[in-house]
Design a protein around this nucleic acid. Structure first.
Lengths: 255, 255
DNA sequence: CGCCCGCTTGATCGTCATCAAGGGCGGTGG
DNA sequence: CCACCGCCCTTGATGACGATCAAGCGGGCG
C-alpha cells in the first residue's frame, strides 16, 4: 500500500477548494485497506466527492441507491419519519464509516432518509466500482460480507436493547459504549451530537433522557456538564445496570 | 441445472433412514439456484444433515458458528433471553430459509440462540464450502451480499415497527404480511406457530396479543378461529392501520 | 440587550405489562 | 363414552413506565 500521494483528483466534486485526494482517502478506509493500488485507482474512478451543509438532506426515504457513501468529515444521521412528522434516528454515521451498501446491493427503495448533522464531506462510490472490485478480488468480497455482517449484528443488538432493556438501561449502555475501554475507574466522554438526536437514537423523548441523566447524576454515578459526561465509576455503573428491573419481561416457555 | 439425482449421500447425518439428496436440496435453495453442478457438488461436500426434535436447542447464545444453516423441513426460532429468563423471538425461520450466515462471516459469538419449534430437518453448510464458492464465482458472492442485505432491510423494518408503531399496528402489519398479495377483498391465513411465540416476535405479551385480536374481531375487521384468521377486508384493515394514533411520537426537529 | 434554541422540570395521561383466575380443547385412561 | 388433566389461550383488575403538554431556565449570537 505504497504512496498514493499522486494527485488522483477524482470525479466531479461539487465544492470549491481542495482537489481532495480521493484515492488516499479510500485507501485509509477499513474496507479498502488491503486493496492493491491499481484497484484503488479503479475505485477512485467510480467515486466522487460530495459536500453537505448542516441540516441538508442527502437522500429521502424511498430513494434507489446506485452506490454507497463514506463519511470523510462531519456526521450523518439515518432515520425514518412517521407520517405525523415524528422521527426515529437509526444510526449516527461518523467519519470513516459508510452507509447505503445494503440498499445498493438490494436495488430496493431505501427505508431511511439521510441528513447531515453538521457540515459534512462525503465520498460517493458507484456500484460498478464495487462490483469490479468484487470480481477482481474475492478477499474483498469477503470483507464486504463481513462489513454487512457487522451491521446486522449491531441492528440485532439494537432490537435486543429496545425489547429487553428499560430506558435507563439503554442510556447506561450507550454511555458505557461511548466511554469505551476503561473497565473500571472513571471516564470522561462527549456526546457526539445534540441530546434530542441521542434521545431519538435511544428511542426516548428528550424529556425522558434528561430525567434519566438527572437521576444518574443524583445517584452519583455520573456527572453531566452540557455534552460532557463523566462516568464516575465504570464498574459501579455497569453493576447498577444489571440490578435494574428488566423492562418488558415477555413470556417464557419453550416451543 | 441437470439431474442431481445421483446418490450424493452427504456427510455425517445424525439420523437413520433416508440418505437424503443434499445436492438436490441445495440446488433448490434461492441462494444456490444459479450455481453450476460442479459447484453444488463441492458445496454438498461441505454440508451435512441435522435432525432436531421439537423444543431442542440447536445452539446457545454465544456460540461461534463455523457455518450456517438451512431449514429443509420444520421451523426454527431465533431469540435472545434476558438473565431473568424472559425471552424475545427475533425471527421464525421457515423451510427454504437460512440463518447464521452473518455470524459465520463475522467469527463472533452469536447474539441469539436457536431452537426448533417443531421436529425439524436442517442442512449445515461449513464456511469453507461457501468461501470456495465465493472464490469461484463472483456472481455467487453478489448473491450472498444481496442475501445479507435482505436481512438487514428486514431488521430495519423491525426497528421501525417497534419504534414508530403501536402494538395494534404491529399486529395488523403482521396479519397483512401473512395474508400476502390480495390487495382487497378477504383473505384467510394460518398463524405459523403458537400465539405466545407470535406475541414475542411482535414484542407483545400473549395477553396483549389476545386482546388486540379480540378487539379487531369486535370491529369486524378480522375473524379468529384458533390459528386460523380471516381478514374480512384487506383494504379496510390497511386503512384502519393508517388511522391509528402513532405509538411513540418521538421528538421532531432537524439537526 | 433580547431573542432563539436546546435543555430541564413539573403535572398528567395512556398504553401495555403484570398478576390472577377462568374457559376450552385435545389427549389419555378408566 | 365420559371423566380428568394439561396446555393454551382468554378475560379482568391493577399498576408502572414513559409520552405528552406546558412552563421555565440558561447560554450563545445577532
Amino acid at each position: 500500500m505504497a504512496n498514493l500521494g499522486c494527485p488522483l483528483k477524482g470525479g466531479a466534486g461539487k465544492r470549491t477548494g481542495s482537489p481532495i485526494n480521493i484515492g488516499g482517502l479510500l485507501a485509509n478506509l477499513p474496507l479498502f485497506q488491503q486493496l492493491r493500488e491499481s484497484e484503488i485507482v479503479n475505485l477512485a474512478a467510480a467515486a466522487r466527492e460530495i459536500g453537505l451543509s448542516k441540516g441538508q438532506i442527502l437522500f429521502q426515504r424511498g430513494t434507489l441507491l446506485d452506490g454507497f457513501y463514506v463519511v470523510v468529515q462531519g456526521q450523518v444521521k439515518l432515520a425514518f419519519s412517521s407520517p405525523q412528522g415524528h422521527e426515529k434516528v437509526v444510526a449516527i454515521i461518523e467519519p470513516g464509516q459508510s452507509f447505503g451498501e445494503a440498499m445498493m446491493f438490494l436495488e430496493k427503495p431505501c427505508p431511511v432518509f439521510a441528513q447531515a448533522l453538521a457540515d459534512t464531506h462525503l465520498l460517493y462510490i458507484a456500484k460498478r466500482g464495487i462490483f469490479a472490485a468484487i470480481d477482481h478480488d474475492s478477499a474483498f468480497a469477503r470483507r464486504m460480507l463481513a462489513g454487512l455482517s457487522i451491521r446486522l449484528r449491531s441492528l440485532i443488538h439494537d432490537v435486543e436493547d429496545y425489547s429487553l432493556h428499560s430506558s435507563t438501561q439503554r442510556v447506561i449502555g450507550f454511555l458505557l459504549h461511548l466511554a469505551g475501554t476503561p473497565d473500571s475507574g472513571s471516564a470522561t466522554l462527549e456526546l457526539p451530537t445534540s441530546k434530542h438526536v441521542i434521545a431519538s437514537r435511544l428511542n426516548l423523548t428528550p424529556e425522558t433522557l434528561s430525567r434519566i441523566l438527572h437521576d444518574l447524576s443524583e445517584s452519583e454515578l455520573i456527572a453531566v456538564k452540557g455534552r460532557h459526561i463523566t462516568v464516575l465509576d465504570m464498574a459501579r455503573l455497569r453493576q447498577f445496570d444489571d440490578l435494574l428491573p428488566p423492562s418488558h419481561p415477555l413470556c417464557d416457555k419453550s416451543g
